[in-house]
Amino acid sequence: MAKYILFGSYCENAIEKRTPYRQAHLDGLAKQKEEGILITLGPTKDNSKVFGIYEADNEAIVKNLIESDPYWQNGIWTDYEVKEWIQAF
């Protein structure tokens, strides 16, 4: 399977705005982790960007997971880019 990286942005005041969606977001990430698709995901310290690493059969699977996430659907994540990644080390 290929590895993919996610780079994305958060909305203004994301910490406050995410509150109603946070548990559903975390539950979805835990499921992806259990299934072996999500390797890691998290915000930058200033909470302006999100970074993630996925392992999946194709990019469409990763994009579907992102676009199904409550943070994307409710405007907490405002944009994203997915790139296939070659892990050198």
Rank of each mutant, 00 (worst) to 15 (best):
M1W: 04
M1R: 07
A2Q: 01
A2K: 02
K3W: 02
Y4Q: 03
Y4S: 01
I5S: 08
I5D: 03
L6E: 08
L6P: 01
F7Y: 12
G8Q: 07
G8K: 03
G8Y: 10
Y10W: 06
C11H: 00
E12K: 12
E12S: 13
A14N: 02
A14C: 09
E16Y: 10
R18E: 15
T19N: 02
T19M: 13
P20F: 05
P20G: 12
P20K: 12
Y21C: 04
R22C: 07
L26E: 04
L26H: 03
L26T: 08
L26S: 09
D27F: 07
D27H: 04
D27V: 13
G28E: 06
G28W: 04
L29S: 06
A30Y: 12
K31R: 14
K31Y: 11
Q32V: 08
E34W: 01
E34Y: 05
E35Y: 06
E35P: 01
G36I: 11
I37R: 11
I37M: 12
I37E: 11
I39Y: 07
T40H: 12
T40F: 12
T40I: 14
L41Q: 13
L41K: 11
L41I: 15
G42H: 06
G42D: 09
T44S: 15
T44Q: 12
T44K: 07
T44M: 11
K45Y: 03
K45P: 05
D46Q: 08
N47I: 07
N47C: 13
S48C: 10
K49E: 10
V50R: 00
F51L: 15
F51E: 05
G52R: 00
I53P: 04
I53A: 05
Y54Q: 07
E55A: 14
E55H: 03
E55Y: 08
E55G: 04
N58D: 15
N58I: 07
N58E: 11
N58L: 07
E59Y: 02
A60D: 12
A60C: 01
A60R: 05
I61A: 09
I61E: 06
I61Y: 02
K63L: 07
K63P: 05
L65W: 03
L65A: 06
I66A: 07
I66R: 02
E67I: 08
E67T: 14
E67M: 15
E67S: 04
D69K: 06
D69E: 06
P70C: 03
P70F: 06
W72V: 07
W72R: 01
Q73E: 13
N74M: 04
G75L: 04
G75H: 05
I76L: 02
I76Y: 05
W77A: 04
W77V: 09
D79I: 08
Y80I: 10
E81H: 09
E81C: 11
E81N: 11
V82D: 02
V82R: 08
K83N: 08
E84I: 10
I86Q: 06
Q87A: 14
A88P: 00
A88F: 15
